[in-house]
Design a protein around this nucleic acid. Structure first.
Lengths: 127, 127
DNA sequence: CGGAATCCAAGATGATACTG
DNA sequence: CAGTATCATCTTGGATTCCG
């Protein structure tokens, strides 16, 4: 009888090129249109819902709520609801969220810093 | 008469939190569902269209072509079409593409490596 | 204040068929 | 082989309204 140890699990480490790799879902959450921006803002500390909405220009309340839920369900964001009226809810990064935010911010910072080069490359590629 | 120097351009460096920052578009291209995977595969060397399609499980030819065009127009991917029949087209990373791929792969690798932790965090967050 | 619910517009994606 | 064209579908996103 063959034993089925943990080493038989093909996803002990992710394989992004496989269609059914769970990494793809997580990746889509953190690289989603608003997910990445939420992480970046939360990296600067705890924020309330309205503060996030105001800092992330262009996000709707609907998408912000949806994005926060996805990040929370992945364990990247912690949600603390204070039982007061009017409601007061605070969002912050979990330790896991801080770790992934390092990588996310590395990407975002590189683009922001190199934007002049990037815009020039776009013009050149358009020729 | 006021001179309009390059320092007047608010986007000499990007500001991702601004709705109209060009960085957002570039970011969406490289973090798109297939864009990220294309970059990762091209990091291993030059590939033909069909090779990319085969390696990136689940991508359709339509989306692959569209993704490659976006990355090419941003200056991340170089497209070389050999004038033979049947057609032979080779894709590779530009120097700019390699630079950004460092960051993209950093993120992807972290997720793949930490997938076990991530899946456990998901279960815990679901409680 | 922080959402949830609903409806609708816009965009992303896919299957298929077709072409140089 | 490497796409493009077309159509159908699914997802994303936004505006509005309502609620505890």
């Amino acid at each position: 009888m063959k034993s089925k140890g943990i080493f038989d699990d093909p996803y002990r480490r992710g394989r992004l090129l496989s269609a059914d790799c769970p990494s793809r879902q997580i990746l889509r959450h953190v690289t989603s249109r608003w997910g990445l921006l939420v992480l970046i803002v939360l990296r600067t500390g705890t924020h309330r819902f309205s503060a996030l909405r105001d800092q992330i220009e262009g996000v709707s309340e609907r998408m912000l709520a949806q994005t926060l839920q996805a990040l929370e369900s992945d364990g990247f964001v912690s949600r603390v609801s204070l039982p007061v009226v009017p409601p007061h809810v605070e969002y912050s990064l979990t330790p896991l969220g801080e770790e992934i935010c390092d990588r996310v911010e590395g990407l975002a910072d590189w683009i922001e810093t190199n934007l002049p080069r990037l815009l020039q490359a776009q013009r050149q590629a358009a020729e």
